[in-house]
Amino acid sequence: MNGNITNRDLLKVSARLALIQSAWTMSSMQSEGFVYCLSPALQKLFPEKKRLLRVVNHYHLPINTHPFLVSILAGAILKMESEKKSQREIASFLRNGGSGLAALGDSFFHAVLAFASVVAALLTLIWGSVAGVIALVLIYNSVHLLIRVSGIFIGFEKGDATLSEFGKWIDSDKTKALRTATAVVGGILMTLIFLITTSNLVDTWWIAPVSAITILSGFVLNLKRAFWVYVLPAFLFLVLILEVII
């Protein structure tokens, strides 16, 4: 049964996984998308239509995970299906694995990788704007594409032991270390913005307090989660008016 799924099928599933968010709803989240993505492999595993319909219902539960890490989950699930694991085992793996990967993915991809690739892109701007664009696209995409494509093969090879294997790649200690490094680089970035913008100015004493107030307000406003998203437009509007008056 296991031999029925070829590498080509896994690649097909991996390509389809890019569309997993398309049918996202608050109740079922990614479950409809998950069935669509797995369907080429499931059709091969269960050619009989009635059996396939029963198997599809294994996924009639809220599924939510990080879209970049879902390939690992998909590979592991296909392995479990090929081993004829019970619906209960599959549902339990989906629930626990999905939420675990979602938490790991959010902190790694959104906070660390996005910021690190932006900083790298800014540093490459010395060689021109196009270099900056290429750097950002290459760094960010190469990491998540690598995980997306290889993830399904790793998942399919390891089955329900995948998560512990994957945990060795991106564990919370590594993410914490990366975050610390990112914070140091963030400080360097702040200084660079400050120094480059003021390098041609003669009278710069007033910029230091402006920057200090900005940094402080950034940290303080961020304590209230998304509060600053709504405060910023109001502040910009105020600046527009101030520029006209002063």
Binding site: A111, F115, A183, G186, G187, L189, M190, I193, F194, T197, T198, I207, V210, S211, T214, I215, L216, S217, G218, F219, L221, N222, L223, W228, L232
Partner: peptide
């Protein structure tokens, strides 16, 4: 200066 520095501050905060 203020807008990108504010961006770095909220990113570090997040």
């Amino acid at each position: 200066i203020a807008i990108p520095i504010f961006g770095v501050a909220v990113t570090l905060g997040s």
